[in-house]
Nucleic acid binder design. Structure first.
Lengths: 300, 300
DNA sequence: CCCCATAGTCCACATATGTAGACGATAGGT
DNA sequence: ACCTATCGTCTACATATGTGGACTATGGGG
């Protein structure tokens, strides 16, 4: 036997709770004739009068009262079914595995991860910091964050630029006191330079108005690790070039100051890499959108 | 927000329990395309994939599993709602108020009422015997049973013939011994007659083969009450004419015997009267059907 | 490796359901 | 007693849903 039309239960319960077909129609924004028709057909199919109604009175029959109790139970379960799916879609959950270079992790993500974790209690973040090349897909990562000076090559991965920041020239106040502050980029040739890479001997500076100048400071030390460079600069060994986010804290504390404030040693781009967007989990999408700055950064 | 199509819950649960759209279609005798279409629309509306399926595999997603639990709960409640109404329809209950003449009550209904009461424990029978004219509708009766010789006049009431029985001529064996048994209806003119009504002086007899004869017995007594007539006949006062059901018991006990056994003094019809059948309660309908002999007369 | 049987999907068309509005019933107010 | 506002019902028509069958996908067997 075919199941009765379950939508009729809904209309029946709404009619009873509204106390009339007209009121139920108003509440549901559908014509009262729809309700009248569906209730009549439900009664025909069940072979029982559920509602005694005239143009001015409305009451449940004994059968209708029995029916209503179970019908309402059915609707409660149906709404629970719908809500549990919708809320599951609304609140991301599960594991999100990210990989990033150590500096990007330390100076960019480290502050954001707790906020993401606080905003999405059901997301389990797995942060893998590494300076080696990582094959995103092959090694099972959902997301990768990379900071780079030159544009990344094309690939099957989707690229989403998270940040573009200037690279500052910085030194300790003690160093500046001892050797004076360079007045122009050309003056850098008379100063000790703490290099970030063996081949980064010549620094290319660009003014805020777009003027470009190159100068080669005196090589004092080379380290390809930002914290080592920061500590060397604070130790008055010389000048160094670092992205603004990496030296922001030392500047705030007064351990370092900007040198040639109107100039930057280029820019660094931080990019989010992810596999194809199709079939992306809500949890992954939520992290992507957070890092993209599209979500309010509120911690609960 | 409009409620989702609740019929889709039913199809979804059937698909999950069947393990495939095809199997669910076979179980429900509907095309698999219907199920495919409805499930797809349900998923679109919920914004979630509930079932992962290919042409050869079928599994619930996490969301689908959560949804299924509540959906099945909803269907259990919906079936309970349907069943409680259908079972209520199946077993008649409530009060049925009948009215009948005193003889019809005593000689016809008195035996049946206990049987009806036994068959339908939830029916509360109210038997009102009266020899006065009763207005069925005006006085709030569900049913009336009337015995009559001539056809009842047309009315707004529905008539249903319950019984057609012959009227027997009876006398006590003592009377027959003292005055001899009439050999032909014409011999009645030499016998004492116990009349049932003042104007019923001439008895019209009809043979089993349809021959009609009229004869006027000697008026001995008149009573319009059957038990009084039965007792008078037993007291050897004369012959009387009574419906077979009324005198059946006295005949069985030997207190009375049939006179002119191949002849009857006409027939009496017992008719059930009821208001319009529309909106008839199941309890009333059950009594009607029982009295009509359409139901098995089983006592629990 | 190829073929076959059965799964799920899609679409043009058939059918069930939803709707607007007219109509009769009725209760309350004048 | 009459009129009006609102109720529920009914019907012709519009729209959503159900269906049959063609098509693609796929897994198992030969």
């Amino acid at each position: 036997m075919r199941m009765m039309n379950l939508n009729d239960l809904y209309l029946f319960v709404q009619a009873v709770e509204g106390g009339s077909f007209s009121e139920a129609g108003r509440r549901l924004s559908i014509p009262k004739s729809t309700i009248s028709k569906r209730i009549a057909e439900l009664e025909t199919e069940l072979g029982a009068r559920l509602i005694h109604r005239t143009s001015r009175s409305f009451s449940l029959s004994d059968a209708g009262r029995d029916f209503f109790n179970h019908a309402r139970g059915a609707l409660i379960e149906a709404e629970a079914a719908e809500n549990i799916v919708r809320s599951r879609m609304a609140e991301p959950s599960g594991t999100v595995r990210l990989t990033a270079s150590i500096p990007a992790t330390q100076f960019y993500l480290a502050d954001f991860l707790p906020v993401i974790a606080g905003t999405y209690p059901k997301i389990n973040l797995e942060m893998h910091a590494s300076d080696r090349f990582v094959d995103l897909v092959q090694e099972g990562y959902d997301l990768a964050i990379r900071s780079h000076f030159a544009p990344l090559p094309d690939s099957d991965l989707i690229q989403k630029q998270l940040m573009l920041e200037p690279i500052f020239v910085v030194a300790s106040p003690g160093y500046i006191s001892a050797r004076g502050a360079p007045a122009t980029p050309h003056d850098l040739i008379n100063h000790f330079g703490l290099l970030t890479a063996p081949g980064a001997e010549t620094w290319h500076l660009v003014s805020d108005t777009g003027v470009a100048v190159a100068a080669k400071p005196i090589r004092r030390m080379m380290a390809n690790e930002s914290i080592a460079l920061i500590k060397a600069a604070i130790a008055e060994l010389g000048l160094t070039c670092l992205p603004s986010s990496i030296c922001a804290s030392a500047i705030r504390s007064g351990d370092l100051v900007r040198v040639l404030p109107g100039w930057s040693a280029g820019t660094v781009t931080t990019t989010l890499l992810m596999p194809h967007r199709r079939g992306q989990l809500p949890s992954v999408r939520a992290v992507v959108e957070f890092l993209s700055g599209q979500l309010p950064r509120s911690v609960n």
